[in-house]
Amino acid sequence: MEWVNVVVQGTLLGGLYALFAAGLSLIFGVMRLVNIAHGDLIVLGAYLGLSVTTVLGLHPLLALILVVPVMAGFGYVLQRGILNQTLGKDILPPLLVTFGLSVIIQNTLLETYSADPQKMNAGALETASVSAAGLSVGLLPLLTFGTAIAVIATLQWIFYRTALGRAFRATSDNPEIAQLMGLNRRHIFGLAMALALGVTAIAGIMLGIRTSFDPSIGGGRLIFGFEAVIIGGLGNLWGTLAGGVILGVAQTIGAKIDPGWQLLAGHLAFLVILALRPNGLFPRIDG
């Protein structure tokens, strides 16, 4: 029973990692951009949530109403102002520019909020739990997991059922010919980044309710998200959820054996899967 509990907790933790990963997966899918600053943007989302809750006295979940559009707007401006200029055959410019961005965001947060760990207060939600079949499961992890499923289902719907998703896929397939359909690539990429940072805002707030955070933890969140993407298989959003769950379970099992082993176990699971299945467990099969 104890081990069942570990697996359940790990699975729910995987929901958070899938949220970290979803934005990363989306922008890679649309414009082949790997955003090194992604983790710092998650942390930025958490801090924006913190500011909104402390200034307006809102519940963190209600803060989403403000933080998601702000982050999305920031994403659009960031993409059109800076990142669009880096896209091309050479992988160096996007990598190095997003790396610089990561350092800028991290240190701006440090300057604004100091290095002290912060946490958002979600009231009764933090301690509430539901019990079933002898297992007690926290409501917050459950809510996070549900959010991850909802976010991925929504992204999936946008991608495969809407004009915007069609434009994303067409631009990703062949950016040049997509322009002949009247699609302005720069605008489409801006929208993709806006959507990705909207999701990132959700990830940041869920993170900020669950654990304490400080400006330096972005790199770690980027790595978790990245591992979930690679484990699940590039370009497969549901695979990313599965990847997050595998990572989460590996971490809770590691932590169960020895608290110092939590992160290491997750990384090792990732490396083992990379060694055995370099394309991930559920690679997307193109027609």
Binding site: Q85, L92, L96, V97, G100, L101, I104
Partner: peptide
């Protein structure tokens, strides 16, 4: 302190672009 790193990051981005 941290401002220095922000400046450094900005310079690097501007140069890269």
């Amino acid at each position: 302190g941290t401002i220095y790193l922000i400046v450094l990051g900005t310079v690097a981005i501007v140069i890269m672009l």
